[in-house]
Design a protein around this nucleic acid. Structure first.
Length: 365
DNA sequence: AAACCAAGCAACCGCCTTGCC
DNA sequence: TGGCAAGGCGGTTGCTTGGTT
């Protein structure tokens, strides 16, 4: 049995792992009387424990509705998504996973999910791509390889992509070419719109794309090179068997929204899980690439709108409008992910993309 | 077979919030 | 309004286990 060695504190109360006998006493008492006052419970139940220890033992282990066993993939996804919105609010996250305790989720996060996100190149705190991964092109094959192996980045970044088992049908080099094309597509689409910085990136490619577009605004001399690269990539990609670039547009990380997704029934629903007031949206359909235009801020009106405590409301005098005074000021309030805004505020962003451009030009291979 | 190491996880610690007087 | 008690919560600890050398 895992845990701590048995000991007593200065008050004589027992600490450490619970014995089966103690468990049974606690269960018997609560089944007969309810827990009532936790402080009074130990004496009434005949336990030499503090009330707090009894409460924890009950809520984390003995409660009859505790779910045992490994976390499912759906639960993993849900935890990751909830964490991206709620942060380390384990109890809040636990309310969306029936039978799972905050302690269990916290342990699972610290021992499994955090590592998994790091391997995927995603910062587990901000849920944004790690900025220490400067060479994203070198990183793409890694992401794709991981995708082929397990749940990993793929289901998270673009479930539809891998639901089709495409990774089993193409070589890694082909997948890399396609991913590069997809990234380029997003970049050029972002570039083709007027407002970029008011948009919340809907996926990691768009995150990079928006960043790159900001860099290119400041360094327009690189734009033509990029367009030429995109054309070359399109030719390369179109020569691949059976797949067109359209198949790979729009990773749907953003589909894992807290908010209601119209006409969707979620994996969460299948497991009785709910998110907020709404059911957990499914990510089976492939939405179109979300243009970085104002009307698509907040997912085109259907996306992020919860205004939860991980978001900040920015008014006319906000950081956002201050940072982007050239943009329209007609929007009275814009909800934007705080971490995203932090990144946008990072003066090093330009340097980041300068390095990307210089590394990837003139060849993407 | 023994030593070592890292992962997993139950349990504890201390701070914070809430409710009551 | 301030003080106190109880409960809740997130972070940390330390033991067990399984794998590796």
């Amino acid at each position: 049995m895992m845990g701590r060695s048995s000991s007593s504190d200065e008050s004589g109360l027992k600490k450490g792992p619970w014995t089966p006998e103690e468990d049974q006493k606690l269960i018997d008492y609560i089944e007969r009387n309810g827990h009532g006052s936790w402080r009074a419970l130990p004496a009434l139940a005949g336990l030499n424990r503090c009330g707090k220890s009894c409460r924890l033992r009950w809520t984390n282990y003995l409660r009859p509705d505790i779910k045992r066993g490994n976390f499912t993939e759906d639960e993993e996804k849900l935890i990751i998504h909830l964490h991206s919105h709620l942060g380390n609010k384990w109890s809040a996250i636990a309310t969306h996973l029936p039978g799972r305790t905050d302690n269990e989720i916290k342990n699972f996060w610290n021992t499994h999910l955090k590592k998994k996100l790091l391997q995927m190149g995603i910062d587990p705190v901000t849920h944004q791509p790690r900025t220490d991964h400067l060479d994203i092109l070198a990183h793409l094959p890694q992401l794709l390889a991981m995708a082929a192996n397990n749940l990993g980045a793929t289901n998270l970044l673009n479930p539809s992509f891998f639901d089709m088992n495409l990774t089993t049908l193409m070589s890694q080099s082909e997948a890399t070419e396609i991913a590069k094309f997809q990234l380029l597509q997003n970049i050029l689409q972002v570039l083709s719109t007027n407002n970029t910085t008011t948009s919340i990136p809907q996926n990691i490619d768009q995150f990079y794309a928006v960043q790159l577009s900001e860099y290119l605004k400041l360094n327009p001399q690189h734009l033509q090179n990029l367009q030429e690269l995109a054309m070359n990539e399109a030719q390369t990609t179109s020569s691949l068997p059976s797949f067109s670039a359209h198949d790979f547009v729009s990773p749907s990380y953003s589909n894992l929204e807290l908010d209601h997704q119209e006409g969707s029934k979620g994996v969460g629903e299948q497991h009785g899980m709910t998110v907020g007031k709404e059911e957990y949206g499914r990510f089976e359909s492939v939405p179109p690439l979300v243009p970085a235009s104002p009307e698509n801020v907040n997912g085109g009106g259907k996306g992020r709108s919860d205004g939860g405590d991980t978001h900040i409301e920015l008014g006319n005098t906000s950081l956002l409008t201050k940072q982007n005074e050239h943009l329209s000021s007609s929007t009275s309030t814009t909800t934007i992910d705080a971490n995203w805004q932090d990144f946008m505020d990072d003066e090093a962003t330009g340097c980041y993309w300068k390095e990307i451009i210089e590394r990837t030009s003139p060849s993407w291979s």
